[in-house]
């Protein structure tokens, strides 16, 4: 048995690595229609796109455009009504091994310490506790929670709770990290700090990230590519490459390239008249 290690990828090499990367997560004509009492409601129109290995893809869109539905389908939590999702060539038919999810709320268990909350992932997946304990501690340290592993969730701030839930999503060393508006419930300053942290974590671990957000600057700051979704029923309005060098700093949010791209993306929502929040 090999000890699971944090994969380290040099920051500068990220772009080159991406260019060579092959499609890893593939969505082919994926659509979702919910059955309701008032008849079927189309949530996501057929969408087709790829996420490359090690890529950070952000999806932005107005509320109720089916972003979260899309993420749940990739996680295998919801079946697609049409089309097919495959990860590394294997069709997604239900919850699978190689994925960790971070939700908008930290969903930590109040009766477990930070460490035990992180280890929940290991227990549920029936993996060997002893093997992953050290990795859990490494992650807790990497996310700046060292010294808090024995604390209970209610003793932590919102930002720290979300860090703990990121540790939980990464502890079994998944290849994919799915994040559903993970910082949406945090205050603006904590949110910026968490964006910096997440960039660092992504650099250190080299995971493939699918990141859902409301915030256009957040998407541009973090992502290699930004996928813009239209209003319900969701469909792809556009996909933008973010050609801003890494590592990115908050200062770069004032740069012309950054401002131009956020303005372009914002244009989609103004045109649709949906940017009301």
């Amino acid at each position: 048995m090999t000890q699971p290690q944090l994969r380290v990828v040099a920051g500068g090499a990220a772009a080159a690595r991406l260019a060579a990367a092959r499609p890893f997560i593939r969505l082919d004509g994926v659509a979702k229609t919910y059955k309701t009492a008032d008849g079927p409601v189309e949530s996501v129109k057929p969408v087709t796109f790829d996420i490359r290995e090690g890529e950070f893809l952000a999806i932005v869109g107005p509320s109720g455009c089916g972003k979260s539905t899309l993420l749940k389908m990739v996680a295998g939590l919801l079946p697609a009504t049409a089309g097919e999702i495959s990860i590394d060539g294997r069709r997604v038919a239900g919850p699978h091994e190689g994925v960790g999810i971070v939700f908008q709320s930290p969903v930590l268990l109040a009766w477990r310490t930070v460490f035990d909350n992180v280890m929940l992932q290991i227990e549920m997946r029936k993996l060997a506790r002893a093997e992953y304990a050290q990795r859990a501690m490494d992650l807790i340290e990497m996310t700046g929670l060292a010294g808090f592993e024995k604390k209970y969730p209610w003793q932590l701030s919102g930002g720290m709770q979300q860090r703990a839930s990121i540790c939980r999503a990464l502890v079994h060393d998944p290849r994919i990290l799915l994040m559903d508006e993970p910082f949406g419930a945090l205050d603006a300053m904590t949110r910026e700090k968490m964006n910096l942290e997440l960039q660092r974590i992504w650099h250190t671990t080299g995971k493939t990230v699918l990141f859902i957000t409301h915030s256009i600057p957040e998407a541009v700051f973090l992502a290699d590519r930004v996928l813009v979704m239209s209003e319900r029923p969701g469909s792809i309005a556009a996909i933008y490459d973010v050609n801003i060098p890494r590592p990115r700093s908050l200062r770069m949010m004032g740069d012309a390239a950054f401002v131009d791209l956020t303005q372009t993306i914002r244009g989609h929502f103004y045109a649709q008249g949906t940017l009301d929040h």
Binding site: K72, L77, P95, V107, L109, W111, L120, E123, M124, R125
Partner: peptide, 27 residues
């Protein structure tokens, strides 16, 4: 029990019994 809690357990491939014992019952 929040639906997200159940989604979390499902994403971890937890069985119904595991979800019940480790999440729903203590909750």
């Amino acid at each position: 029990v929040e639906p997200e809690m159940i989604d979390l357990a499902r994403s971890m491939k937890a069985s119904r019994l595991q979800t019940f014992m480790r999440i729903s019952l203590p909750h």
